[in-house]
Design a protein around this nucleic acid. Structure first.
Lengths: 189, 189
DNA sequence: ATTCTAAACTAACAAGTGTTAGTTTTGGTA
DNA sequence: TACCAAAACTAACACTTGTTAGTTTAGAAT
């Protein structure tokens, strides 16, 4: 059972098209054709093109917020928290590669939900920053510029969506492990 | 002297708008208004909207190709080559933040030059891969999955464009140094 | 068999798209 | 001053956009 219902089918189909061409370049007629229906029929299930984008992005942003809250409250080392963040990104991305493209590239086309999205993203980044600074303070992490560390790790995790699909043979646990290794331990012997 | 001529002004202005909303969401009338002119007047300087995108992306792609060729031919260690790649990205991005957004997000809207762009990108990635594999073979780099290493480093470098502008106080040498540190040596003490 | 509702359809809209044709303005050179 | 080309302008084009109105179809419940 690939889709829960027609609305879900429309949203998932749209997410695929948004990933390939971006939100603005995809028309309601494109989505309709991919679903096998006329453009006007889409409006029996969704309110607007905007609503499709919002449902894709907000659902994902809330998954990240939720996952981060769990990690933050766990009583584990800072390094372990970083590993769980990597795992969080790998898991969410593996389950929704197409939607992650919209989250990364089309968030600025949100209208009603733009402020809400920006708040979620800012909070997420602040939580991430806090974990890094705690790790530095406790001596678990090298005392590099924590902004550079945040940017470096997060940008890799953000582009996972365009990379995972090409290596479907990999299971998420293996990938999260390897990625944690490279991101946290570096590449120099 | 900010612009070489009016064509250059149009292209740089367009690049800024493309970064903010994406190629497809920016209209010729948007570009014209930002330049301070009517849309039809743009066509005295450029052939089409497509041409603007091509000039932005291809110029940058060729800079990377050129830079990579120099690095590849240098007689230096693999680690030193990686550091020079980081510097290459920092320098090009610092000089063209807006254009880098198009290179990353709007390349799929290229038409005539799409194949050429894809070839340049593929060659660049292959050269990068070769440097990593040589480093592993010579024992300079940890024997991690080289595809994971390639993805991890390159994805960070690709998103520099959205991050550099927020820290204009940093000079490129300092940033390249810090970034090389985190990317190559990791963050764990 | 009849009813009814969800969901498909056709047709059309007003606004916006990239681009062209033809005309006027501008500012340096003869 | 007269000229001329570069570059601005106005007006319009053919087409595409998201969306709505009104109608028909399909299939489950009575």
């Amino acid at each position: 059972m690939k889709y829960e219902n027609r609305k879900d089918e429309i949203i998932q189909t749209a997410a695929l098209l948004f990933k390939e061409k971006g939100y603005s370049a995809v028309t309601m007629r494109d989505i309709a054709k991919a679903v096998g229906v006329r453009a006007a029929s889409l409006y029996n299930h969704i309110k607007s093109k905007q609503e499709i984008l919002s449902e894709i992005i907000i659902a994902l942003a809330e998954q990240f917020t939720c996952g981060m809250n769990v990690i933050q409250d766990a009583e584990i080392s800072s390094v372990e928290k970083l590993k769980r963040i990597v795992k969080l990104h790998v898991d969410i991305t593996a389950n929704n590669q197409n939607g992650m493209a919209s989250l990364n590239n089309d968030w600025m086309h949100l209208e009603a939900d733009l402020d809400y999205y920006l708040r979620l993203r800012k909070d997420y980044e602040n939580d991430f920053r806090t974990i890094l600074n705690e790790g530095i303070a406790k001596g678990e992490l090298i005392n590099f510029d924590s902004e550079v560390m945040l940017f470096s790790i997060l940008s890799t995790l953000r582009l996972l969506y365009g990379w995972i699909p090409r290596r479907e043979e990999l299971n998420p646990n293996y990938l999260a492990d390897k990625l944690s290794g490279v991101l946290l331990e570096g590449v120099i012997r």
